[in-house]
Amino acid sequence: MDFRDVMEPKYRELLENYIKDQSEQALYAGQKFSRKSIEHKISPEEIVSLHKSLLMQMQPDLPENVLYSFDILLEVMIGYGLAYREHQSLRHKQEELRSEMEIAANVQQTLLGTKIPEVDGLDIGAISVPAKHMNGDYFHFVQDENNCISVAIADVIGKGIPAALCMSMIKYAMDSLPENRMGPGSILENLNRIVEQNVDPSMFITMFYGMFNPENNLLSYASAGHEPGFYYDAAKKEFTELSAKGLLLGVEKRTKYSNYHKEVHPGDMIILLSDGVTECRTDDGFIEREILIDYIYKYIHLSAQDIVNKVFKDLEKLQHFQLRDDFTLIILKRKV
């Protein structure tokens, strides 16, 4: 049966009980009634008018001026009723937005999807986790016809949806660059021109671009203002910073990017990351890069994918499972 049909007798019973003995129990029944009526979208002014009409039936000799006072209460409550209905409709809209956001995040996943290539002699692991719905970090692998493996890791300055949309554009720019033997430096120069011309002037991108040639085990790389990664030298058991100089993409049209080179020996690792990794904030402040190294070292005997997964889990725990920034960590390990 519809709540509206039983509402009147129910409310009448409540009133009668309470008028009779003013018990706690009767008050509690009133609370239950209000929950039920909210659930059935009964507005506050409806309750007031119900109250008034029941009072007239139950107490016919009630002074007229008391009854008149209910008209004022009714008028005042109309405003509350409107606010309540607005609140309901906003909640509904919020639900809608949230589900659209989820769809957008899925579309982004599809658009930006990249496959970790299978290469003889190279063990590759990658993880990228957004702080919110949309990821402003991005990584991309390309395997060209000469079997060279290229990896790009990028972070859009700015967060959320605009950053994510911007990243999709970069991906398509990267895909449309001619693959044939462009060095990392010239790839960044090309992308810089595209970002400078096409992206909102207050949005910038940091990117590290590396290219590994399995023929001679040479890594060439260049960086556009990206958080430096690490290089692990297996023979010396030593981590060094994989630093490269270069300006953020999108600031200055004529920026040049230098190529750097490194010979990769068996067991060596190339570790790339986004600033969400180093800006991991714990109760005692930021984690130091040395601590990050300790975490990587702890899992160094595992496969590249297991290392990145485990390091992420540990750092996530340190931050009480609340990422402040998008987190991306990539490891390329030359097989022994």
């Binding site: 300055i157 700015g158 002037p201 207050s202 910038f204 953020l248 600031v251 800006e279 402040r324 920034d325």
Partner: peptide, 14 residues
Amino acid sequence: MDSTGLGVFVGVFK
């Protein structure tokens, strides 16, 4: 300051 702040200063600088 995170990179968002950096973005503001680069914009202002330009």
